[in-house]
Write a protein that binds this DNA or RNA. Structure first.
Length: 462
RNA sequence: GCUCGCUUGGUGUAGCCCGGCCAAUCAUAUUGGCCUUUCGAGCCGAUGACAGGGGUUCAAAUCCCCUAGCGAGCACCA
């Protein structure tokens, strides 16, 4: 199997599908996986030098490791060799038609005059291409397929073209004659003995095009599966590398890991495990129709992975302060309700607490401060009533979360929809970067950093 | 326009190749209840789909045809 990313930027969520599914198949059938960077267009799909490593990082985050990593731009000589070989077999010819002219001929199933050149001329002209003696657009090498094929998409397609712009990788900067994807990929899949290919429906015709080359060389084409596009709900921002890049450059996003961006870096920072993404992607299957990935599916998988380990904490957004009259001066809610052995949290209550505005009961009504006890809202204070927990069960008194008004830690919670500010119980400072906790009644969050004036956390999901 | 492909509940998926065991699977979602000092977890229940129309057949989600909708390729992009 192989992954064939185009290194033109950090990965978004949709990019995860390829490694998720291919990596899973590899593990399932004890296969072999190549990561091949298809970076053969220095101009329109100009490679981003940082993307090579960032993509490998993302693959690791998802939990996979390629058995071999190559860059197509290191293999240009190999493609030249195969091209010469193909020319000698009469399978390709150099063509100096401009794109429009050829397109018209092709659409009327007519051969262009260059199609009948003799092999020696073609070889000589191809070598001139390799030496960079033509400018962009002046000469291409075409594969001789079937100019009358009923599908115009398959007629004599371009295998090599001239590109004036140097490749950003210095190792490849001297090449001017570059292979097109269908040629390069077709050669490499055979060279690396790839047995199974999974790719998008946009490449539906690739196998049919490459089949002509395979036939000239008498190779067997790998099994191929095409899948549709993935759309993802819940995001306001489009899942397009160029769109995200533009928003970052204009300052609307903080970076590739901004929680509002549909990128893998963002999900990682939110504390979502790669495995959850993989599970959700694998569930999508490989159907050729377009599919919608619901973020709730990713969340459901992640919740399953993190719930057991996530310690519970209180975090109050936009806290309303209430004086507490009577009652104990400590609260000891459990660290995790399903794991008594992890002990309890010791929260110093002080004389005042903060609770969320929506949780303040009407005057005269009661509320149960979770892990502490029952209080009644009287005038501007909470009066401890000392009643039994049965009032929660039988009299539908609400249970709410709270923090001490004095001993607490300011916390910023970064979410997909913007930042929220509030206060958490002191214990939050004992967690380290990357720990995932659950803010009770709010949701899971990843601890990002402890700054001087506040703790920064990222909202994972409910 | 030419060519190729797809269409099962809100979402994803199984089944389709080799017609009957499909009054259609599982997950998620929504929702009701139980439990619970969380709107988390767990348990029980409910909701909800074969794009439409013809045909073949004793029998069609499954095979054939037509229509509609969606998508892709027809690039010197990947």
């Amino acid at each position: 199997m192989r992954l064939a990313p185009n290194p033109n930027g950090p990965w978004h969520l949709g990019s995860a599908r390829m490694p998720a599914v291919i990596g899973t198949y590899k593990e399932l059938y004890d296969g072999w996986m190549l990561c091949r960077f298809d970076d053969t267009d220095p101009e329109t799909k100009r490679p981003d030098l940082d993307a090579y490593d960032s993509i490998l990082d993302s693959i690791e985050y998802l939990g996979f490791e390629p058995d071999e990593i190559v860059k197509a731009s290191d293999r240009v000589e190999t493609y030249y060799d195969y091209a010469r070989n193909l020319i000698e077999k009469g399978g390709a010819y150099t063509c100096s038609c401009d794109g429009e002219t050829f397109s018209e001929l092709k659409n009327s199933a007519e051969a262009c005059p260059h199609r009948s050149k003799d092999i020696d001329t073609v070889l000589a002209e191809f070598d001139a291409m390799v030496r960079g003696e033509y400018a962009s657009g002046e000469m291409v090498l075409r594969v001789r397929t079937d100019i009358e094929h009923k599908n115009p998409a398959l007629r004599d397609w371009v295998a090599f073209r001239m590109v004036d712009t140097p490749h950003p990788r210095s190792e490849a900067a001297e090449y001017r004659c570059w292979p097109m994807l269908d040629f390069q990929s077709g050669i490499d899949d055979h060279e690396f003995e790839i047995t199974h290919i999974v790719r998008g429906i946009d490449l539906q015709d690739s196998a049919k095009r490459q089949a002509f080359v395979y036939e000239y060389f008498d190779w067997e084409y790998p099994e191929v599966v095409h899948w549709g596009h993935v759309q993802i709900d819940e995001y306001d921002i489009s899942m397009s590398t160029s769109t995200i890049k533009a928003l970052i450059e204009s300052g609307e996003l903080d970076g590739w890991d901004d929680p509002r961006a549909p990128t893998l870096a963002s999900l990682r920072r939110r504390g979502i495990r790669g495995e959850a993404i993989v599970n959700a992607m694998v569930e999508l299957g490989t159907s050729t129709s377009n599919v919608d990935l619901a973020m709730s599916a990713v969340y459901a998988h992640n919740r399953e992975l993190v719930d057991g380990d996530a310690d519970r904490l209180f975090f109050v957004r936009d806290g309303v302060e209430k004086t507490l009259i009577g009652g104990p001066d400590h609260a000891e809610p459990p660290v995790h309700p399903d794991h008594e052995e992890r002990g309890s949290r010791d929260i110093p209550v002080g004389g005042r607490v903060l609770i969320e505005p929506d949780d303040v009961p009407p005057n005269g009504e009661r509320v149960w401060l979770k892990g502490y006890g029952p209080v009644r809202h009287t005038r501007d204070a909470f009066e401890f009533t000392g009643e039994d927990i049965d009032i929660v069960r039988n009299e539908s008194v609400d249970v709410v979360h709270w923090v001490p008004a004095d001993e607490n830690i300011p916390v910023r919670l970064r979410t997909m929809h913007g930042d929220e500010h509030g206060h958490a119980e002191p214990r939050i400072t004992t967690y380290r970067t990357d720990d995932v906790v659950q803010f009770e009644r709010i949701g899971f969050a990843r601890i990002d950093s402890h700054e001087e004036d506040e703790t920064v956390s990222y909202f994972t999901h409910p």
